[in-house]
């Protein structure tokens, strides 16, 4: 199973004075079970890109193939695609509307045509997966804290049993602990449910700690695509477009300049710690 984007371009307000090319010739292959991070500035095209993956936006040109099928084919069921590629938007406030959390999570499977019983089973398992304690389930979603709302929003999409889960800035506005809790939960989902995760973020440190593959967007194009190590090795180019590698990556570079022989580069704190300790041990 895979998603393939073939030379996808998207233009806002085409043929007017306000024309903006949001995506330029994006070609991309997303494999089953990957954990991908997409980073870039506001306006780099990352939000536009993810809305193409479930067919919410239609490319101005180029093709998108889900499991080998052209999603722009006339008889392709694009509504079903939205269930397979689940998209969680940045603000949970934009989707919570029911009187209870449990009912809200049932909304997705019901729309897919599942019976009440089946929908409830799916909601049950989704709420379990996001780690929301059971005594919350029948409360109003509007009484929750920011981090809990975020979990309910993720559960609302997860209940549709997606094969790919796309999360747009899932940690924006959360405090540090809440941020780590959500990211840990997402990482657990990827392992336990074995689904592909695409995480959109502008925090380099967050992304470096979790993902296997990193896609850097800039001005509608893909600037880098590789493992965090490969991408952050280009920290000078990243800086030129106003993005930055994690602090520890710079630190390793500084240390070797000052003659401390740290071998290799680090993108997470744990790696940096090991490398420094090794260097000191060898002394």
């Amino acid at each position: 199973m895979s998603i393939i984007l073939d030379k996808v371009s998207y233009v806002y307000s085409e043929k007017t004075a306000y024309e903006i090319q949001a995506l330029k010739n994006i070609s991309l292959k997303i494999q089953d079970g990957e954990f991908i991070g997409i980073i870039g500035h506001t306006g780099s095209g990352k939000s536009t890109l993810i809305q193409h993956l479930n067919g919410l936006m239609r490319a101005s040109s180029g093709g998108i193939y889900y499991n080998g099928q052209d999603i722009y084919d006339e008889d392709y069921n694009r509504k079903e695609l939205r269930g397979k590629v689940g998209l969680v938007f940045q603000y949970p406030e934009h989707q919570l509307f029911e009187t209870t959390i449990f009912a809200d999570v049932c909304f997705g499977p019901k729309n897919q045509g599942f019976s009440r019983k089946e929908s409830e089973l799916k909601a049950f398992s989704a709420l379990r997966s996001v780690g929301l304690p059971e005594d919350y389930w029948y409360r109003s979603p509007f009484e929750l804290s920011g981090g809990q709302k975020r979990r309910v929003a993720i559960a609302g999409v997860l209940a549709m049993d997606p094969e790919v889960l796309v999360l747009d800035e899932p940690t924006a506005g959360l405090d540090p602990k809440g941020r780590n809790e959500i990211l840990d939960q997402v990482a657990r989902l990827q392992r336990e449910r074995n689904i592909t995760i695409i995480l959109v973020s502008h925090s380099m440190e967050d992304v470096a700690n979790y993902v296997d593959r990193l896609i850097v967007m800039n001005q509608g194009s893909i600037l880098f695509d590789g493992t965090p190590k490969e991408v952050f090795a280009h920290y000078q180019e990243l800086e030129a477009v106003g993005l930055a590698a994690p602090q520890v990556t710079y630190l390793m570079h500084d240390l070797s300049q000052y003659g401390i022989p740290v071998c290799g580069m680090a993108t997470t704190m744990e790696e940096a710690k090991q490398l420094i300790l090794q260097a000191f041990a060898k002394k």
Partner: peptide, 28 residues
């Protein structure tokens, strides 16, 4: 868009169904 991503349908159905489908939009 957030509700469409959860499979909401704002277009098909009769008037009553359409009015009902606006709830997930209007409450938020």
């Amino acid at each position: 868009k957030a509700q469409l991503a959860r499979g909401a349908d704002f277009e098909s159905g009769n008037l009553v169904k359409k009015a009902k489908s606006m709830v997930p939009l209007l409450v938020p």
